[in-house]
Design a protein around this nucleic acid. Structure first.
Length: 429
RNA sequence: GUGGGCGUAGCUCAGUCGGUAGAGCUCAGGAUUGUGAUUCCUGCGGUCGAGGGUUCGAUCCCCUUCGUCCACCCCA
């Protein structure tokens, strides 16, 4: 019989991995909290219409990447491909946006039916941050400053760089799009096949073509910055000034466009060269029209999302995971002989009563030799041994397994009364 | 959706120019008398990804399929 495996592109995160995830999530949570952002949790299923109306009907996500199905009522539901639309829907539904500012974040799985590759999976996790109700560039800057702090906390700052652009208002973008299309049509023979196709479906996306010949053509193309409306120009200038004053370096990239239709004015991406073909670890921008587009009162919004798997890959490949991030016990209790198992449980509880944060492991089954070998290999700092003599003496042996020298077997251990264990063990913790 | 690499033990991999397989690690037990370096011995563990074809015989050759990795498209 065929074995049942996980769905393609949907990965189990195994016990060996979870400490890294917890470390990343804890760090992010701490940073977001320090900027006064509050967590919101949304369902992973939404009405299909939500994504069609927000992301854009002709985007790849909506056209061919969504997990969409009918439920038993015949309603069309979709596993969320991204979080912003869900967050807007939730905030709007519960009246969080009515004349109010909201600073929100969320974390969880997103789903896109693409071919998996390094840093890209069909179920992947994003940490998203959204701010509603603030129209000015100050909040755009705060979000970027916050992400920069996060990279610093994670030790990744030297390995990421910030790309930033302004897409202007919808009207300005339309004028630019026409100018770009006119230019590209005149040079259509030099474009690669993908770009020719995009020219019809989504001309702005030709700008970030990976084809060198297309990029050469684009060198002579109209520049986005020349088409920005005054308001967007001023907004962008203030944002850049704030970043300058805050010591955040960036590269203005007038060819940076985003794949989702709702972005306008500010867009940005944090990119890296350490992830293979997937360069983007964090991306976002402003979406002032989205709330209204989804039926709410006009409310400005800006946000970004980070790819958790990509950040984990970076942490691993750059060896940025702190040594204390692991599952290793701090104390391992080995019991040897008749009746000692019960005593081991009692001693473990005594330790946990006093030091709840330490990791105490007791064994069940197996031989002492292999247990000690395993403890030795995993660098558990403290081993407690309870044998029949100790049981009789109401004592335990405190042993450190770090000394590998000849004849050290019984030297690195000390027998202490159980009543005195809490005092004595503190010297080892 | 397209292209390429790879599927042999729980893991990392050898191997058979076609005669149904091996190592290291892991795991269990022992040499070791309540106690860990390094050794040494023994044992558990594989329908060689699946299906079909050629053949006396296929893990090996051919076809199909599935899985996986990487890249394209696109994106976090």
């Amino acid at each position: 019989m065929a074995k049942i495996q996980a769905i393609r592109g949907m990965n189990d995160i195994l016990p060996e991995q979870t400490p890294v995830w917890q470390y990343l999530e804890d760090t992010v949570r701490r940073v977001l909290q320090s900027y006064s952002y509050n967590e919101i949790r949304m369902p992973i299923l939404e009405q299909t219409e939500l994504f069609k109306r927000s992301i854009g009907e002709v985007t790849d996500i909506v056209e061919k990447e969504m997990y969409t199905f009918e439920d038993r009522n015949g309603d069309s539901l979709t596993l969320r491909p991204e979080g912003t639309a869900c967050c807007v829907r939730a905030a709007e539904q519960h009246g969080l946006l009515f004349n109010q500012t909201q600073k929100l974040w969320y974390c969880g799985p997103m789903f896109r039916h693409e071919r998996p590759q390094k840093g890209r999976y069909r179920q992947f996790n994003q940490i998203g941050v959204e701010c509603f109700g603030i129209p000015g560039p100050d909040i755009d800057a705060e979000l970027i400053i916050m992400t920069a702090r996060l990279w610093k906390e994670l030790g990744l700052l030297a390995n990421v760089s910030l790309q930033i652009n302004s897409l202007g208002t919808t009207a300005a973008r339309a004028v630019y799009r026409d100018a770009l299309v006119e230019y590209l049509r005149a040079n259509i023979d030099a474009l690669d096949e993908d770009s020719k196709r995009r020219l019809e479906s989504n001309p702005l996306r030709v700008l970030d073509s990976k084809s060198q010949s297309t990029q050469d053509i684009l060198d002579g193309a109209p520049d986005f910055s020349d088409y920005l409306d005054d308001e967007s120009k001023a907004h962008f200038a203030t944002l850049l000034e704030t970043l300058d004053q805050s010591g955040i370096s960036y590269e203005v990239n007038s060819r940076l466009v985003r794949g989702l239709d709702y972005y306008g004015k500010t867009v940005f991406e944090w990119v890296t060269n350490d992830l293979g073909a997937q360069g983007t670890v964090c991306a976002g921008g402003r979406y002032d029209g989205l709330v209204e587009q989804l039926g709410g009162k006009a409310t400005p919004g800006v946000g970004f999302a980070m790819g958790v798997e990509r950040l984990i890959l970076m942490l691993e490949s750059l060896d940025k995971i702190p040594a204390e991030v692991n599952n290793n016990p701090d104390v391992f209790i080995v019991s040897v002989g008749e009746g000692t198992q019960i005593e081991a449980f009692k001693v473990a509880e005594i330790l946990r009563n006093q030091f709840l944060s330490i990791n105490v492991q007791t064994h069940c089954g197996g031989s002492n030799k292999n247990r000690l070998k395993k403890i030795d290999k995993s660098n558990v700092p403290i081993t407690l041994i309870i044998g029949e003599n100790e049981l009789k003496n109401k004592s335990v042996i405190i042993k450190t397994l770090q000394d590998k020298s000849e004849g050290s077997q019984n030297k690195q251990q000390v027998e202490v009364p159980v009543a005195d264990l809490l005092n004595k063990i503190e010297a080892y913790l």
